[in-house]
Each structure stands twice: as C-alpha cells, then as structure tokens.
Design a protein around this nucleic acid. Structure first.
Lengths: 254, 254
DNA sequence: CGCCCAATTGAAGACGCTCAAGGCTTGTGG
DNA sequence: CCACAAGCCTTGAGCGTCTTCAATTGGGCG
C-alpha cells in the first residue's frame, strides 16, 4: 500500500489530461493556461480505498486533483448515518473550494484506490492574480459542484428510490464520458451498494431491491464493478435526467 | 404593485449595509472595496411575492442582490413537485453564480415582496480584474452557497421530518442574526407551511404536524409570520445543528 | 357577509426501514 | 486443494414514517 508515499510520474501525464478534458468541456483553455496548470502541480500521491484524504475543519495548504479512482465528500450524523454529498471522478478537483474556504465543512475520502496531485494554494493564488480567464473557469468549476449539489437535493427531497438511483447512474455516465471513461453502453464503477445508498439517502437493502428492479426492467445492470446500461433512454427517463445542470457546452451535447 | 418599475433610492442605503454585514461576517472588506461595491450597483427594483425574478436557462447580464424580503432557488419535477434548494435573505446575492455560469440551472423567485439591486456582470468583471481580495470573497460567497446545499442534502437524505424543520429554522436564525434581523428569541418569517415543505422535502400536511409537535414540546412556535424560539438549545439539538458550515468568523460565534 | 387561501385534523395506505437469515465471492492459511 | 473467514449481496417479514385524500376550521380582505 503506497499510503503517503510520493510516487513516480509514470502514467501521470496521461491522467492530468483528464483534467483538461473536463475543463474544455465547459470552456476554452489556452496553451499558456494549460502550462500554468501543469507547473502549478506539486506532489503526486496514492491512497488505498476507504482513506480519508481531506479531513473536515482542518486547514490545508493545497487543493487535491483526482487523477485516478473515485472519491466522495460526505458528512456523518450522530447516530452514524452518513450522507455523501458528491462523488468525484478522474479529472475533478475534489476540494478546489478549500482555496477560498480555507477548511472544509465535510470530509473527503477515497472509495477506490486513488492517485491524486496536490496543487499548493500559493500556486492557485498566483493563477488568480495573473490569469483572469482561468480564474473564472475555476470559479465556474466550484459553481458546477454547487449545481450538482442542487440536483442531488432534488433527488433526495422529491424523487423516488428508483429515480434517485437512476439519476446517480446517469450523472456518472455523463461525467465519465467527458473524460473518456464511459460510453452509452456503460462504465466501470467500483461502488458497493452500501456506498450507493449513502449517496441517495436510502438503505443498502432498499438499493438492492431497486437495482434488481432496474435490471429486470432491462434498463441497467450493475454487477461486478460495471454499470451495464441496457437502455440509456429509459434510464434517463426513469431519472427525469436533464443534463443541462452539468453545463456541458454544445460540443459535448448528448 | 411596483412590478418592474425602477424605484427611488429611499431606504436603499440602509439595506445595502446588510450586504456588508454579511460579507464582514466572513472576512475583511476595505473602504476601497466597499466603495467599489457601492458604485457597481445598478438599478433598484421591487417585486411582489411569488414572482420569478431569474428564470432558469436564460442568460442574464447582471447578478441580483437581495435588499429586502425573502427569495428562493427551486427546481420542479414533471409531476409538479417542487424542491427549494436554498433560501435567500437580505444581504444575499441570489445569483452571484450567474456571473461564471452565464445562465442558471434553476429558477429564482420571491416568497415575499422584495426589493433588489442589480449588479451588471460588466461591473463584477471589473472587480475581478482589479480587486483580487474582494474577488476571493465573492468566490467564497458562492462556495458558501454550496456548503448550505450540502447541509440541506444531509437533511433531505438522512434527517427525520422533525429534524429537517428544526434545521431550517436554525439556519435562518443564524443567517438573519448576522444582518440584524434575528436574535436568540426568534425572527420574522413570512413562509407558508407549503413553502417550508418544499424546502425540507415533506408534504405541507406533515410539516403542519411537525410544527405542532415542536410547539407542544416548548421548542419553537411558528405562527403569524413570526418564528418564536422558546428553547434555542433544544431546537439546535433537535436539528443536530453545527453552525460551522456557515463559516462565520470568531467574532460571530454563537 | 362571504370568499379565498392557509392551517388543521382524521383515516387509510404506501414506500422505504429494521431486523434477520442465508448465499455468494474472494482471499488466506493449513 | 480445501477449509474457513470476512465482506457483500440477496431475500423475507413486519413495522413506521410520511403520503394521500378528504373534510373542516380559521383568518384576512373586498
């Protein structure tokens, strides 16, 4: 387990490309800006699954860019119940908001083995002073997280269990597709049913029943670490999925 | 009804002070920055209750600062169910995120008669180019909205009906207190039970029962447009309320 | 006075939870 | 190669919170 051990740059360059894919799905990034981002990157680290990478209420001097794997933001209640507030995939900044907030109101942990890059806030500050266009794109990026939170609020507050699970699977498909990790037939996803239940505000038992129903309806089959989408149109209909909240520009319209 | 009619500046100056109170609860604002904000303000407008001020997916050339009244962000589902994703009070920018997002993924409407100030994006752009500290404070401000969304996700996903309502009333108390519109004994709030139910993901019928229970428990009494807090400690305990997500600095600790 | 909207209450039902047990898969060690 | 353990998935049965549907009360206003 490579916990907290700086890692060789092998394979890292390709993974940083996913961050550019994610940014360019929403706006233009010049060669100069791309270079500024590359040179802002500090240490590369790897973590096992189930590892708290950014603890709540602890000031960090850097933001964390997810290169490979899946991570989540979550809060726990007194009785041990957990609510995941957002999932993160390759190419995402998992705590860009710590640049302005200083500390987070929630924990961030890995759900699979992950590789990340640290970007010192000092370097981000330099970007905000020199590159206003890129600054607005990063500001946009944290506002996109808020838009995802809003869509989850709608799910948690008003959708049925079936629609909530469908919604989550639609969102991941769209977000992973941008970075080349999904197509219309599905994607790799190593989440347990308990982890999914912590995203959608249900119990693991009920998620299990919902997944069975979606499978038997010929819509989607989640098994063995893969989301096999049998009928994307039906999945989106079940979720009442409107991808506009992901703010993909016209070149990425589904 | 003064719908869409530019309004005289009578009383406006005092109301803009609430925006500075809100900002200064989270960071320092210099005299120069304060002046920049004042001169960035454009038209003043008034709207009646139940008026959609910012429609979803329509590009706006300005952001809207709420001077007086209460507004909400919401999304509707096919069957007409509505989920409110955030409430806004005096001093809030209700759509600062439209500066980077260009258009919103949700509607914004008034819940009471409101007075607002428009701030052209052009003027905000000038601030981002000239005042990096204020820019970070406004970026922070949109990240604070995201933190509020996260806390609502926890409520909607994991809290009981009783705790959800208590949570909402705690949050409003803390936010209104910053701008001088609440104290520990309560505050004025003109929301119907149906509107509350659209915030907390319940039906109006169930919200009514929850409010009765909270009243009979001697915790809080919501009637006649006023939230009368009988026992603030018990209210916060019922909500499992941890105000840290509102990022109030030490001078505003409760 | 009568209208309209919000608040209130009751009764029945549904969706999802709790509790419990059994099955499957994977990895480890004898 | 097999036995065993651990974690996850699966299914059943009963229960509870919240919903739905419906009717009544109360308050503000023309």
């Amino acid at each position: 387990m490579n916990l907290h051990v700086p890692h060789l740059m092998v394979g890292t360059d390709i993974q940083i490309e996913r961050h550019f894919l994610r940014l360019r799905a929403r706006g233009d990034v010049s060669a100069e800006e791309e270079q500024a981002i590359r040179s802002a990157i500090g240490e590369i680290r790897e973590y096992p699954a189930q590892h708290v990478v950014i603890p709540a209420y602890v000031e960090q001097g850097y933001s964390t860019l997810l290169l490979e794997g899946i991570m989540c933001r979550y809060k726990d209640l007194r009785d041990g119940q957990r609510q995941v507030t957002e999932l993160h995939v390759s190419g995402d900044f998992v705590d860009l908001h710590s640049f302005t907030l200083k500390y987070l109101d929630h924990d961030v942990m890995t759900l699979s083995p992950c590789r990340v890059a640290r970007v010192p806030h000092e370097n981000l500050r330099r970007i905000t002073e020199q590159l206003p266009n890129l600054t607005r794109l990063y500001w946009f990026s944290t506002n996109l997280d808020a838009a995802i939170h809003r869509e989850w609020e709608v799910s948690l507050g008003r959708r049925t269990g079936r629609a909530r699970v469908a919604m989550l699977l639609c969102e991941l498909q769209a977000r992973l597709k941008i970075v080349g990790l999904a197509d219309d037939t599905g994607y790799e996803l190593s989440l347990t049913q308990t982890e999914i239940s912590e995203c959608v505000g249900l119990t693991n038992v009920h998620v299990n029943r919902v997944l069975r129903e979606l499978r038997q309806s010929g819509i989607v089959d989640l098994r063995g670490g893969r989301v096999a989408i049998t009928n994307l149109a039906a999945l989106r209909d079940a979720a009442e999925f409107d991808p506009r909240y992901l703010y993909l520009d016209h070149r990425h319209d589904q």
